[in-house]
Amino acid sequence: MSVNRFLLCLSLLVPSSCFAQGFAGLGTQADGFAIPEPNYRFQFPADHGAHPNFRIEWWYLTANLKDEMGEEYGVQWTLFRSALAPGEAEGWQSPQIWMGHAGLTSASAHFSAERLARGGIGQAGVTLAPFEAWIDDWKMTGAEDLSQLDLAATGGDFSYALKAQAEGPLVFQGDRGYSIKSPEGQASYYYSQPNYRMEGTLTLPSGPVSVRGNGWLDREWSSQPLSENQSGWDWFSLRFDSGDKLMGFVLRGKNGIEDFRSGTWISASGAVEPLAPGAFEAAPLEWEEVAQRQVPVRWRVKLPERGVSVTVEALNRQSWMDVAFAYWEGPVTVSGSHNGTGYLEMTGYQ
């Protein structure tokens, strides 16, 4: 029993990665956890905070940035919450486990770091008014409506400190924030803030770099986000130069089950339209060996109803999050019918 092995097992509990084995009954059963229901009325700022009665939850911010020389970067700041049992308790007895992931990507380098903590003692958590999500010395703080955020994280050989200013309203994914994840009806509560203007400083081994760009925050919680017949997912958040945005994901089926595809179109005017099941299409064009496995790093993404047919290509093909349960996450460039930038997350590739 080594702790690394342990972390691997533990991280199977964590949302972006609980595809593989339906571990510990996660795939289907909820063990007393609350289940997302349709027609939920979100309450803010309360819903920006933690929902300990649900099994999993995350505060997930990605940003596409450029320095003064036009060099491109990507930044990820994520806080995951994963509950061993529903509810909260004092001190060490808390069943809540928190995990932080930070990533920093340039065309030539990729850095990642992680933090683990438990709830109940104050080492990690989320408070409202003012808003603060933190784990150890990593922080995302700001206004209680998330219109403005400061975020910071430090890894072994990198760190960043960024400010985010929202330039639009929150976007509710799926059916007014009720996002279906499989034909069997697995679902989550899911909303985003895709309109952050970002600026700040990245500190790389070569020194500090001032950057600007755009950020996208995802908030999602659930207790059973996956079907047993899903092996992983490919998640795209694309920001076109036209001002339109596209969020789309493919939950890859296994055991002969079809992929489940869904997404949301956010027009430049701010109108939000959930996509019909199967409308979003994504197919790998090129694979690359990353961390001893084959991972698609160039994609053809189509949304025929909007005339979208683009090539999505990784800025850095080796954007491997080398954490306890590893996955691919990095900035992408978009070209074709539309041009732009975005973020791609891929999990479950063996």
Partner: peptide, 9 residues
């Protein structure tokens, strides 16, 4: 591995 995971959990 999954047994061990369950054990640690």
């Amino acid at each position: 591995e999954s047994d061990q995971g369950a054990f640690l959990i």
